[in-house]
């Protein structure tokens, strides 16, 4: 038989005996609740951030699906990397992602997070986000419209409900790999200085 067909068959069969079948009832219940309540960090990292306000306000109303904004990383479940991501932004995204509580998910928007997009030859922009952070769902387009973002969210919800996503676990298990890639572009000091300098010094607020 043809090799591609065999591989496809394998993929389909592996789906059947995935972890869903031997999930405890508590896990099942928790996944059900997680799926229905998604807090999105209010942090726009690129030009795609402009598509997020319409997604969350009256016109497209993501709240009817249980998706709503969260102001601080401590309370957020999802961080949206919306578009191109320069080194300087990547530092902040890594810091923010590491501050979020498990389980956490990353939704990546636009061509830029997939393969650099129109910034493919920029010296200051990373090309593949998944080298540095574990991405759960890509929404393609430049930029994706709110409809696409909602569809991405719904796909994410489905995966969460099935208990398939464990990217935060992947990040912890393969931390050496991610750290190596991060250090390759950001140098030894991956995260920005962690203090309230801007608040306490230099004139303050």
């Amino acid at each position: 038989m043809d090799e591609g067909f065999l591989k496809e068959q394998q993929v389909m069969e592996s789906d059947l005996n995935s972890e869903t079948s031997h999930k405890s009832s508590v896990d099942f219940l928790m996944d059900w609740f997680r799926r229905r309540s998604i807090f999105v960090l209010a942090y726009g990292t690129g030009c795609g951030a402009i598509e997020m306000p319409p997604t969350f306000t009256s016109r497209y109303d993501a709240e009817r699906l249980g998706i709503r904004g969260a102001a601080t990383p401590r309370q957020a479940d999802v961080i949206i990397v919306s578009g191109y991501c320069s080194y300087k932004t990547l530092r902040r995204i890594i810091r923010t992602y590491e501050q979020m509580a498990n389980p956490k998910y990353i939704l990546a928007l636009g061509s830029c997070t997939v393969n650099g997009g129109m910034y493919w030859d920029s010296y200051n922009t990373i090309k593949r986000l998944e080298d540095y952070l574990p991405v759960d769902m890509y929404v393609n387009g430049c930029m994706p419209r709110p409809e696409s973002i909602l569809e991405g969210f719904m796909a994410l919800q489905k995966e969460i409900g099935d208990g398939k996503i464990s990217s935060w676990q992947k990040y912890e298990d393969n931390y050496a790999f991610y750290r190596k890639n991060q250090e390759a572009v950001l140098g030894q000091t991956v995260a920005p200085a962690y203090d309230a300098d801007w608040y306490l010094y230099d004139g303050g607020l």
Binding site: M30, S37, F39, D61, R64, G66, N102, P103
Partner: peptide, 19 residues
């Protein structure tokens, strides 16, 4: 807007309990 279901806050609370 259509808005969330009336049990939405309850879902949120239970979800946070599982974090």
């Amino acid at each position: 807007r259509i808005g969330p279901t009336i049990f939405q806050s309850f879902y949120d609370s239970i979800k946070f309990f599982g974090k």
